[in-house]
Simulated assay, not measured.
Amino acid sequence: MSWSLWFTLVAAGALISFTPGAGAINTMANSLGSGWTRSIWGILGQQVALLAHIAVVAAGVGVLVAGSPLLFNVIRYAGAAYLVFLGVRQYRSRAAAARVGELRREPAWSMFRRGLLVNLTNPKAVVFFLAFTPQFIRPEQPLLTQYAVLAATVVVIDVVVMWFFFAAAARGLGRLTQRESGQRTLNRVFGGLFVGVGVLLAAVH
């Protein structure tokens, strides 16, 4: 991959990562609930799902998903239902007054698993990478190396954006969680966002 093509990939990857979606909402919710440092576990789960999507496209299965309306819709509605479930659970979660600096320490595996499922159950990501990836792959060059460079670049960019932008931005809302009313409001806001993204995923074709 030439440097000019790689810099184009970096610009495109940054634009994609900065576009708010379920991953960004999940990251901000984790940062608020468990702290900025521990929010990395959810981000890592999202990256494993992202790598899975790239692998699916590289293996050619993405063509099957894109060409099978039934398979696509099954995965799409499953993903939408999962996001709505997360939203309802977040919305209904009990608020508890927190002392300054006190956070509920959700297990790392729980955050990792949720991040994995949030991104993994989004078939639009497969279709997106199916259209996105060929722009940066040259068939006459070694494919494995090119896919490795693409995957590493996209993952690093997404980790940086999620952790140092979305998770860091959520820290500014941390003071609200020190009051029961503020915590309840944030639970409802993020719960509503999860539900909204889930509904959009199910409704938009």
Rank of each mutant, 00 (worst) to 15 (best):
A14Y: 12
G62M: 12
A148E: 09
Q141S: 11
G182Q: 01
P142S: 12
Q46F: 12
G172D: 08
G182L: 05
L44E: 11
A52F: 15
F72P: 09
T133K: 08
A96V: 14
F72K: 14
R179G: 01
V199S: 07
M1H: 06
V156E: 00
A78K: 05
V204S: 12
A58T: 10
A125G: 11
R138E: 15
L86D: 02
V88W: 13
L9F: 09
V126T: 15
H205I: 03
N26R: 04
W6K: 09
A168D: 03
N119T: 11
F18V: 14
I75C: 08
I137E: 02
S93R: 15
G13W: 07
I54C: 04
G174N: 05
A58C: 08
F190W: 01
V56F: 13
L32R: 01
L176W: 15
L9N: 03
V56C: 13
A152Y: 09
G62A: 11
M1I: 03
E106A: 13
L32Q: 03
A80L: 04
F18L: 15
A168M: 12
G172L: 03
E140V: 05
N187C: 01
A125K: 06
F129A: 01
L201V: 13
A58I: 08
V65L: 14
V57E: 07
A66R: 14
A169I: 09
P123C: 00
